[in-house]
Design a protein around this nucleic acid. Structure first.
Length: 290
DNA sequence: ACTATGCCCTGGGTGC
DNA sequence: TGCACCCAGGGCATAG
């Protein structure tokens, strides 16, 4: 699942290989028609062909390729998508859904087993990402911002972390990791978190995203970077898909449950679940391992 | 305004 | 060995 660290790794890989290049041929393969959101598949391929990429940016989990006609090609990989830079003559993989040939003899391949990836071609990238708030690594995503968003919600704190309007780029892996780092039970009602724990959670979100970015992302299944290699962070997570294993902090077995409709991993030994309205109570300060 | 659920999609894993 | 079933989940649509 490409989340912020994975998409940013792809962006950093592809930017030097793509910026300044012209897209000479674009093909959306049969069966992958739903990839094209703003145009019919053939029309989108035609519109992209001949355009030069002037910049490759990212917001949350979206890649934003600014084109020489002022429009933006917005790509989202959803769960199983990858974009790999290779040669024009490289053989198509089993799950290749589209290919984009460049003017230097290279080629981008969109691989996406489950066909959930999307491409938009829009005048303003915000059209393609409604309900998307500040990027989780932008200063606009601040402790105060997170505290304010949590204070008005009764849903579990994890559901709020997954809300892209709150912190664009956070997905299931890093929501679980951030809750563990902060010592907060992901099932805690958001409005019971309080400003102090919100600040700790904010720091935890930043910490887990930056650590994963330093490891070039996490490859639990399909994620590949812009050159087709796996990430390194999956062996360094604390709770995600570690159910049954001992907690790195207290040794209790990690458990898996379901929160906000998502598989959720947590340590019942050291992730606290304050009662609603008890956010000011200062119980024993927790150990500061981490 | 909010929260919860189902949908899309396909491969891998499990149980009979 | 085969087959039915369930699970994985990002973002959106819909229902409550």
């Amino acid at each position: 699942m490409p989340e912020l660290p994975e998409v940013e790794t792809i962006r950093r890989d592809l930017a030097p290989l793509l910026v300044g290049r012209t897209l000479t041929a674009v093909r959306i393969h049969a069966g992958a028609e739903r990839l094209a959101i703003t145009h019919a598949p053939a029309a989108l391929a035609r519109e992209l062909s001949g355009r030069r990429v002037d910049d490759l940016a990212r917001h949350g989990k979206y890649l934003l390729a600014r084109l020489d006609d002022g429009r933006t090609w917005v790509l989202h990989l959803r769960m199983t998508g990858s974009i790999v830079h290779t040669t024009a003559t490289a053989q198509a993989g089993r799950f290749e859904r589209a290919r984009v040939d460049l003017d230097d003899g290279h080629s981008l391949r969109l691989n996406d087993m489950r066909k959930f990836a999307t491409w938009h071609l829009v005048a303003d990238p915000r059209e393609a990402m409604p309900n998307t708030g500040p990027d989780a690594l932008d200063a606009e995503f601040s402790p105060a911002w997170l505290a304010a968003r949590l204070a008005t919600r009764t849903a579990p704190v994890k559901a709020v972390l997954l809300d892209q309007a709150v912190a664009a780029g956070v997905g299931n892996i890093y929501a679980d990791e951030a809750c563990w780092i902060a010592g907060i039970d992901p099932r805690t009602p958001a409005d019971a978190v309080g400003p102090r724990r919100a600040a700790r959670l904010h720091a935890a979100v930043c910490e887990t995203l930056e650590e994963a970015l330093g490891d070039r992302g996490s490859s639990f299944s399909d994620y590949r970077d812009g050159l087709g290699a796996q990430g390194l962070h999956q062996v360094r997570v604390h709770v995600f898909r570690r159910d049954g294993e001992p907690c790195d902090r207290c040794g209790s077995p990690i458990v898996k449950t379901r929160v906000a409709g998502r598989g959720t991993h947590l340590c019942p030994g050291c992730q606290r679940r304050p009662r609603r309205g008890s956010s000011r109570s200062s119980r024993s300060s927790r150990s500061s391992a981490g």
